[in-house]
Design a protein around this nucleic acid. Structure first.
Lengths: 347, 347
DNA sequence: CTGAAAGCGCTTACAG
DNA sequence: CTGAAAGCGCTTACAG
């Protein structure tokens, strides 16, 4: 009964074993185990007991051969390195993880050809759906509408309206930050927006602008500054800002790295944060926000929840409901000392 | 844009379809496709062509039902948040990814019970092997020897010698750093080791101590300092160090966050880096090392390669070879300006 | 309620 | 070299 003796594989327990022990046919055993109602209760108990004592685990391949679902979804990421993909993956994994669905992980390394291959491989494995996780909020090429399974896009939206995408609400994030600054009495607000090539940067600027107008204010210098997402740029542009607009009383930065740079320069120039100037960033990257002097207020993108939402949507799409479009998900402001501290309660 | 109405494929292409088109039996088709040698070459070509035109993809479940391998491995991580797990996963995914093996991802969130459940679920899915990725180099509980598939541990080693574990060589890392400092003429070296509760911290101290002895030197202050892995601690303990040992000419830090703190305090105290004092860290976390003033020399743990190695080992273990023990993998020093810059060529 | 039988799509001895 | 047949482990009409 054994296989090749090299592997010394113990034959695993099959439904036949369970049926034999319970004294029923495999058909009945199957029904009992799957909760079909055409089984006498006493019989079902007997089968369940038998399965229990034998530690029976149904062979998923045999099951899949008879059922429409494989119980796996593919997660396609373009950059595992990127820190944005991670929390999203956590959320998605979390939403599936505990259930009967498993996540097949693929990293395309930002290479389109590699991505194509991975999609093919995932489909060959008969995944029930695909979740595509990107590293920036700019639209990415759609996988197309001809795939045999539903697809959702997380963080990086598809460029095709027919697809469903989930992205953080960067516009609202910009507005949230401004409202907080204004509520704290700030009137001369500068915006160090980051890299204009990123939709995230532009969206945040849009939200900031809106909220400022609503408050009857204008940006210091008349417009946002754009530059690399780095501490170095944050330091440099903040120095320029202090020269050109020494009266500035708040510096809002496009991400936490820029904000770290701003904090450093302000400190070196003798400006006290938050007494003289308030500073805030975006992304709420803890390693940066909690250790700065002072700790940094930041807009958190709620990425884990975004991943969870995307996964849940995929679930429903698998069950037949589909609709397209980009869904923006709420973000939240995390207030720390750089804008007066948590007791200053915003939002 | 004409719509192709033939795309209504309910039933997917099976081997039977291929066989029919090629005018052979499914048995022959199977052999041809699988490279069995008992097939006439002309026949094989015909089958391959048929498969090609039909875009045939073998059903993996049917295949798995007949073969000893499922073609999937489980990756069990205790914390997707942790930045160490990520590059390791990338490496592992990379080693498998392109091949016929897929990675099933599970995150146990550091919860033992959850981990147990995930292992069970992965085994139920008939994974061919398990790769357990931890977030610190301290030993973790073994999954035990009773699992039906091979297991390898990455970063966090198993506490059971019978298991195979891959960890970065922190001892050698400590030595590497010291050798570099000494080669640069440093004689009064301080060690801000980080959290003594971590094996990584203690191992690095051990390597540092060894290398110092070899050079006939001693640590400034006679011993390493221990504290939290934070910039704040790095700042504080560096201030103390400058008070107690103003002659210090190198500060080696247990990780990059501590090193960032050290750099800041040195700068504020008017010490020039690297002219007066050299500074180096561990982990080579780019967001921290490349944007500091000056950019920070750091020992890189080569985590992606570690993940790749672990995955490859699992491959071989699946093929039957097994042996236990903890394997330490090489790390490397990345020299930046904080120790004189790359041209100062160390290692 | 229960079970014999067909079948999911593929592979592999085993005869031709 | 090729194919008929058995079988992998399970599910589901379909008869009892």
């Amino acid at each position: 009964m054994g296989r090749d003796s090299r592997g010394e594989q113990k034959r695993s327990i099959t439904l036949t074993d369970v049926a034999r022990l319970a004294g029923v046919s495999v058909a009945t055993a199957s029904k009992a185990l799957n909760g079909r109602r055409q089984v006498r209760d006493e019989t079902r108990q007997r089968v369940l007991a038998a399965a229990e004592t034998l530690s029976f685990t149904p062979n998923p391949f045999a099951q899949a051969l008879n059922m429409p679902r494989s119980g796996t979804v593919g997660m396609l990421t373009s950059d595992l390195e990127g820190r944005f993909a991670l929390p999203i993956m956590m959320g998605a994994e979390d939403a599936f993880g505990s259930g009967a669905t498993s996540v097949l992980l693929c990293d395309a390394r930002g290479d389109a050809e590699r991505e194509r291959k991975h999609v093919e491989a995932l489909l060959a494995r008969r995944v029930d759906g695909l979740i595509v996780v990107g590293s920036r909020t700019d639209p990415r090429p759609s996988l197309g509408q001809r795939l045999p399974v539903p697809v959702v896009y997380a963080y990086a939206p598809s460029d095709d309206d027919a697809d469903v995408s989930f992205v953080p609400d960067n516009i609202r994030g910009g507005a949230l930050a401004v409202e907080h600054l204004v509520a704290g009495g700030r009137r001369r607000i500068a915006l160090l927006a980051g890299d204009a090539d990123y939709a995230a940067a532009r969206d945040r600027v849009a939200g900031v602008t809106e909220a400022l107008q609503a408050a009857g204010l204008e940006l210091v210098g008349g417009a946002a500054s754009f530059g690399p997402w780095s501490e170095a740029w944050g330091r440099r542009v903040t120095a320029e800002l202090l020269d050109s607009d020494p009266e500035v009383d708040a510096v809002l930065c496009g991400n936490d790295q820029v904000a770290r740079g701003a904090l450093e320069t302000l400190r070196e120039r003798g400006r006290r944060v938050p007494e003289d100037v308030w500073v805030a960033g975006f992304d709420d990257w803890e390693v940066l926000t909690t250790s700065s002097r002072p700790p940094l207020t930041s807009v958190d993108m709620n990425l884990e929840e975004l991943g969870r939402t995307a996964a849940r949507h995929l679930f429903h799409a698998i069950d037949g409901q589909r609709h397209g479009g980009i869904v923006t998900l709420p973000v939240r402001l995390v207030v720390r000392e750089s804008t007066g501290g948590a007791e200053n309660g915003a939002d």
